[in-house]
Amino acid sequence: MKSVLKFFRTGLGLIGAIIILALVLTAALAPVIAPYDPNAQNYEKILQEPNAEHYFGTDDLGRDIFSRVVYGAQVSIKAAIISVGIAMLIGIPIGLFTGYYRGFWDEWVVMRVIDALQAFPFLILALAISAVLGSGFGNAMLAIGIGFAPAFVRITRGQVLTLRNMEYVHAAKSVGVKDMRIIFGHILPNAMGPIIIQSTLAMATGILAEASLSYLGLGVQPPTPSWGSMLNQAQTLMSVAPYATYYPGLAIFVVVLGFNLLGDGLQQFLDPKTRK
């Protein structure tokens, strides 16, 4: 409890945590918060500037932008959790086993595959996978998750390489504790700090990547409201309804900033060099 309080005292982490909590609440309470159905079209009220009835205005189909931004939070939070979840599911076990057992497979197979995967620019890799598997939210998540996985392999492996030489690991080995129990029971809990930081920062990138793919038309498909696809549709309206571009982008910015602040706060809190 003390350390939780200490973490929040860093200020940055607290602001980040509040933003993320607001995102989660907005996503969960979207049907209550949103005044209109996000997909309901009203041709009598197209392209209305922000007003008391439509706080963020309406788009070219007369849909309420505020309601769409609120529902868009659901997509973003799903994107953050699913993409990073996939990356962790792939990356952490590979990092644990290769770091613990080392040898030929670690040095010459897994790490070289990771090097090769990291040679592909992230968005290009995600684009290629989406191109092959087809557009849509699920495939976009898979693409982003695969793109993130190498970073998790590296971070986990790096931690394991240090932890495997710790005395408590040698002690566990000497009393006959099985490898699986050492890896998952002793090493993994001690390696979690940097993995948590990485996952927080990856969630920020995951939201940006989902928005980018949706913007390009390869992520969430219309009419489902996603901040990226809303920006795609608003781009054609820039000269007549610039406000349509303001709010979805601002939402992405604030949420990504929240995850970055939380990640930074965690880093400062967990890193002995910066921890006061």
Binding site: A204, L208, A211, S212, Y215, L231, A234, Q235, M238, T245, P248, G249, L250, I252, F253, V256, L257, N260
Partner: peptide, 9 residues
């Protein structure tokens, strides 16, 4: 934290 494409717009 700013999305490139939003900043571009």
């Amino acid at each position: 934290s700013i999305p490139n494409f939003w900043l571009a717009m």
